[in-house]
Nucleic acid binder design. Structure first.
Ligand SMILES: [Zn+2]
Ligand SMILES: [Zn+2]
Length: 194
DNA sequence: GCAGTCGGACTATAAACTTA
DNA sequence: AAGTTTATAGTCCGACTGCG
């Protein structure tokens, strides 16, 4: 994907960014209010917020701090199931129209009832993707592509698709009868059960 | 109090780029 | 190839609201 346009939303209140961190400590730091002034030596700088590698579904949906234990403390306290959902990772799709067109010419089936095409790398892309969509969507690899839900095997209503309920979202999650939590790739509205 | 919601600040990480 | 910068996916703080 070409790098163009401004960063999506990394601004801190003052709209300023701190000094870039060196080597393996990439990124930069918002230095407003309790942060660091420009030019400060970052040796010994302490992160103000530690993150877990993956927050559980409940914590993620409520945007609250999770912990690495499973079940996590919050789910234990509330007596609810602690589930880790499917994560969309950064994409490495086609970078140009030509590249996408070439990729799109290589079609395959990965599951009965769900057609797709191979990307320029090993990624599989859902069949209804246009090349423009392919620039930002598509499974990372076969494993994620297997998560695609064929027509008629998804949630039965919009309410059931509790994750990413907006139409057109590239993935979703729902609960099957029996409480089993499932995630799917594609658009939930196209995978509705009868 | 406590739990749920949510805007947005903050962090982690892969891709893109640069340097040696 | 290794190091650095940048874009983006993801976490979760803190303010707010509603409930019992
Ligand atoms: Zn959690
Ligand atoms: Zn949990």
């Amino acid at each position: 994907m070409p790098r163009s346009g401004p960063p999506r939303s990394r601004k801190c209140a003052a709209g300023k960014r701190g000094p870039a961190r060196a080597a393996s400590g990439q990124g930069s730091v918002c230095y407003e209010e309790g942060g660091l002034p420009l030019g400060v030596d970052l040796q010994g700088y302490q992160r103000r917020r530690e993150q877990v590698t993956q927050a559980c579904e409940r914590c993620r949906r409520s945007r609250l701090k999770c912990d690495p234990e499973r079940p996590c403390g919050r789910c234990v306290r509330s007596g609810q199931a602690c589930l880790d959902g499917w994560r969309r990772r950064r994409q490495s799709g086609a970078r140009t129209e030509e590249e996408a067109a070439e990729a799109q010419s290589c079609c395959t089936w990965w599951e009965e009832g769900s057609e797709g095409f191979l990307g320029s790398g090993d990624e599989l892309v859902s069949p209804d993707s246009t090349w423009e969509m392919y620039l930002t969507e598509g499974a990372w690899g076969e494993e994620e592509a297997q998560a695609a839900v064929p027509l008629g095997h998804g949630p039965s209503t919009a309410e059931e698709a509790w994750e990413r309920p907006a139409q057109g979202e590239p993935w979703f999650a729902w609960e099957e009868e029996g409480g089993q939590s499932r995630e799917g790739q594609g658009k939930w509205e196209e995978c509705l059960r009868d």
